[in-house]
Amino acid sequence: MKATILIRPKAGILDPQGQAVETGLGHLGFTVRNAHVGRLVELEVEATDSADAHAQIERMCEQLLANPLIESYEIVVEAAA
């Protein structure tokens, strides 16, 4: 089962990368606010159904993929074809 995990800096935490991107976009003439830079993980997991996949990925996030002190995550499991 295919899944995508979006890992973001937690709301309210200083995000220097996001700020740098925001400044860079400003130099290009764009007006943007609240730019944040996170990480995207794509994977395929052996799972009985999407609930099982979701539960497994939740554990992956807690144990390795994200650091709960500074990051939040969002799991998107692709609907089975």
Binding site: L14, P16, Q17, A20, N67, L69, I70
Partner: peptide, 16 residues
């Protein structure tokens, strides 16, 4: 810190 033996976490320098 990642192993949980010390509190906190080390992040990217604020200066980048």
């Amino acid at each position: 810190t990642e192993a949980g033996l010390l509190p906190g976490v080390l992040r990217q320098n604020s200066t980048l």
